[in-house]
Write a protein that binds this DNA or RNA. Structure first.
Ligand SMILES: [Zn+2]
Ligand SMILES: [Zn+2]
Ligand SMILES: [Zn+2]
Ligand SMILES: [Zn+2]
Lengths: 155, 155
DNA sequence: TTATTATATAATAATCATTTTCGTTCTTTT
DNA sequence: AAAAGAACGAAAATGATTATTATATAATAA
């Protein structure tokens, strides 16, 4: 945790920014919720627990800064809010997501899976890929199980 | 064009809705701009040219309805507005997009490209895929050319 | 050390997209 | 025709995000 923060601090310095207490508090919340997909408001409320004097605008500014530096990725699942996702250290590309249309859960896929697809796109569309967003909408395992149980009860 | 509208009319009827004049005007705009990626506001302004009495809320309601019926797909490229994309007739899946981070242009990929990836995801993650969103961010051919020219001028 | 400058901040206020409300109109059913 | 239901337009409300403004803090120059 601490060394991770140290490295982020260096990334900020390299880009000419400082890790202010507010920024550190925000980064800590993101690190403590690496599995989640927090909205700006979510982050704000969590940061506020430890540092009640922080402002919402500061959280937005910090998240924007971290996005610029590719420390976090901003993603939108179509529910009207942007969510912020800590990028795995050393990951070249943004990871993928599985969004359950029944329970709303979001799972992550860290595997790349797109190498071949990207080769095809770069070759056939002459498009230089810098980043990608891949989200699957469907039914998670848990919800599939629930359906199966309901079927059994009927019989 | 007319038969396409007829089929959409049937889809609405099947779901218990009517193709009112306002809805028809909206659908026509979408058909006439199949290549574009219009925002609700864009659609509103275009519909207004032919039917000035239409309200913005009606356009939003219509786009929402068409999204529900999978006639259009709602997509968000991260610029704060939702865009509405007519789904190709008979297409099982939503098509993919190439967004240029320099000029903002959006190109479409109609090829599926994800068959294998989806097989892997359904098998390994036990996730029943219903739909997907795949967007590549990068540099379009035209912008690459522009860069190349700039390089030549320097030399 | 003191003055100056730049950066970052909290607390608003403002903006912009989208949704909701509500009174009206148009259709369908009785 | 009367009643009920669906759809509408205009305006108000909402909610996420950004801009503004006045302070504070830190870095630099005098
Ligand atoms: Zn689920
Ligand atoms: Zn994620
Ligand atoms: Zn371009
Ligand atoms: Zn498209």
């Amino acid at each position: 945790m601490e060394d991770r923060i140290d490295r982020i601090k260096k990334q900020l310095h390299t880009a000419g920014y400082k890790l202010t207490p507010q920024r550190e508090a925000t980064v800590r919340v993101l690190l403590e919720h690496e599995e989640d997909h927090l909205s700006a408001e979510d982050v704000y409320l969590l940061v506020k627990e430890k540092s009640p004097e922080i402002g919402l605008a500061t959280v937005y500014r910090t998240l924007e800064l971290l996005t610029e530096l590719k420390i976090v990725d901003k993603i939108n699942f179509g529910d009207g809010v942007s969510r912020y996702d800590l990028r795995k250290e050393g990951a070249a590309h943004f990871h993928h997501h599985l969004v359950c249309i029944e329970c709303g859960s979001v799972a992550e896929i860290q595997e790349d899976l797109l190498e071949e697809v990207e080769e095809i796109v770069e070759r056939d569309w002459k498009f230089k890929i810098k980043d990608h967003r891949l989200t699957f909408h469907g039914i998670c395992y848990r919800c599939q199980q629930k359906h199966a149980e309901e079927q059994n009860q009927k019989e």
